[in-house]
């Protein structure tokens, strides 16, 4: 945080421009009714009004940042190193959830290579251990990966914590309830 930072000004300009685009471009193009509508000789509020109010909040906020808070003390400084770390975290999360989504079907496809009558994951998604495979591998990758990222090294301990945490979550969310579906079994 510093007095030198111009982050408030940049933020103010960004949101003021975004609000103008929202009010004059996005809302008119992406709503079917206007601010006020006349339906069967009755005047009603259209679907565009409420988002326009949201846009006005953003516009006023942006303008106050530019006019009143441009030189505010303690403006945050954006650290590109932190943002880089966050980007890596997001890639890891995306990879984990892709493994979670496709891990089960992929395992079934692998098993099918050795079988004459192929299995179908969709039919197995309610039976153990198949229903846990995606969640197990994706969850372990996520927890173990995040611990390793923060610690700066991959350790068997991180993977073990991931395995234990995922097994504990299966025990909490799945074993006691018949009606709860762990990811990704509601989608497949």
């Amino acid at each position: 945080m510093s007095n030198e930072s111009r982050s408030n000004l940049v933020l103010g300009i960004f949101f003021a421009v975004f609000a103008l685009l929202l009010i004059f471009v996005w809302i008119p193009l992406d709503t079917d009714t206007g601010l006020i509508e006349k339906v069967r000789r009755q005047v009603t509020i259209g679907d565009a009004l409420a988002p326009t109010v949201a846009g006005i909040f953003l516009l006023i906020g942006g303008l106050i940042l530019i006019v009143f808070e441009r030189k505010a003390a303690d403006q945050p400084e954006i650290d590109p190193v932190n943002l880089g770390f966050m980007a890596v975290v997001f890639v890891l999360l995306a990879a984990s959830f892709l493994v979670m989504r496709y891990g089960g079907p992929a395992l079934v496809a692998l098993v099918n290579l050795t079988r004459e009558t192929p299995l179908e994951y969709r039919l197995l998604r309610d039976s153990a251990p198949w229903k846990f495979t995606g969640f197990f591998f994706g969850g372990t990758l996520m927890i173990g990966g995040l611990i390793s990222l923060v610690e700066g090294r991959v350790t068997p301990r991180a993977v073990l914590i991931g395995v234990i945490a995922v097994l504990a979550m299966i025990a909490v969310y799945d074993l006691p309830f018949d009606d709860l579906l762990l990811p990704p079994n509601g989608d497949v």
Partner: peptide, 8 residues
């Protein structure tokens, strides 16, 4: 200002 942006 930031509060209004958050609300918006």
């Amino acid at each position: 200002a930031k509060g209004l942006i958050s609300t918006g």
